[in-house]
């Protein structure tokens, strides 16, 4: 198994710099970090990858059973770290990848210098006192949105999904191409992302952790950021004055600064 090919791993930045691994969330791929990477590259060795089922990952590596649980994705993160022999890693996980980091770090704590959880949510579904922000019916509705969109996009998506390395001209016509995914795989990832409950796993994190939340995030409300900080011993919480769920795109400067100052101190 070629791990680098499987996860479309790309390495950039300062070769002898401390290692920062940037993990994208549900929806798009490593392009999500395109505004943050240049800021970090001067000081850090930046490792980017696509989760299997997203972006330019190897579609033949897809395994529905493995990727129906966040453990499968966490396993991939550890395999990437081993393959590249990464040490003292600052793992930055956006959205669902924050929880993937929470699962991966305790398995090989000696490999991780710290975790940055960007717009994390350990569980999206309301449960008693806990306010995740959504009901199960909401999540079902999201899965429906996904289905109808993949049909709507089919004319655009089809050539990408089929893969046309010999026809580069297709690349220019493609809109929405950063979020291309095989609909079957996206459905599984969506389910895994929004139906996982990792609240119990937070206590298992022993490495230094920075929680970064957005002040106006419709997916991860403020209570969730505080919940994550309270459950991870010794963690700190930073609130960015950002709208939406993707501060690395809407507010790349402050996001990169939060990551850099944390990673620098490791």
């Amino acid at each position: 198994m070629d791990i680098v090919r499987r996860n479309n791993v790309t390495v950039t930045g300062r070769e002898d710099g401390p290692v920062v691994v940037l993990a994208h969330g549900f929806g798009c791929d490593q392009n999500m970090w395109r505004l943050v990477t240049p800021v970090l590259a001067g000081e850090f060795r930046v490792v980017l990858f696509d989760h299997v089922g997203s972006g330019d990952s190897d579609p033949s590596a897809w395994d529905e059973a493995r990727y129906s649980s966040l453990e499968g994705y966490a396993q991939d993160v550890l395999e990437i770290c081993r393959e590249l022999d990464l040490r003292d890693v600052t793992f930055v996980g956006h959205s669902v990848s924050a929880m993937i980091g929470v699962l991966a770090a305790p398995r090989e704590p000696e490999r991780f210098a710290g975790l940055v959880l960007l717009a994390p949510s350990p569980s999206y579904i309301d449960d008693g006192e806990y306010r995740g922000g959504f009901s199960e019916a909401d999540i079902e509705e999201l899965l429906e949105s996904l289905e109808s969109n993949y049909l709507g996009w089919s004319s655009v998506m089809a050539p990408v999904i089929m893969g046309n390395p010999d026809r580069p001209e297709l690349g220019e016509e493609l809109t929405n191409s950063f979020c291309r995914t095989d609909p079957r795989m996206a459905r599984v990832f969506a389910r895994t992302t929004f139906l996982s409950d990792n609240r119990e796993d937070l206590a298992g994190v022993t490495v230094p952790t920075l929680v970064v939340e957005c002040a106006h995030d419709t997916l991860a409300p403020r209570e969730v950021g505080a919940f994550v900080r309270d459950r991870i011993a010794g963690s700190t919480l930073v609130t960015l004055d950002a709208h939406g769920h993707c501060p690395q795109l809407s507010d790349p400067g402050p996001t990169a600064e939060a990551i850099a100052s944390f990673a620098r101190a490791r």
Binding site: G25, F26, G27, C28, N31, M32, R34, S95, F134, D138, I139, E140, E141, L142, L143, E144, S145, L146, S148, N149, L151, G152, W153, S155, V156, T175, N176, S177, F178, C179, F194, T218, L219, G244, H245, C246, L249, S250
Partner: peptide, 24 residues
């Protein structure tokens, strides 16, 4: 559901490529 889709797909795409189209 559409709102989640907006946050995870549409908003990032719009930031990255300046336009999106054909979205249901």
């Amino acid at each position: 559901g559409g709102r989640i889709y907006h946050e995870t797909h549409l908003a990032p795409l719009l930031r990255m490529q300046g336009r999106i189209g054909g979205i249901a």
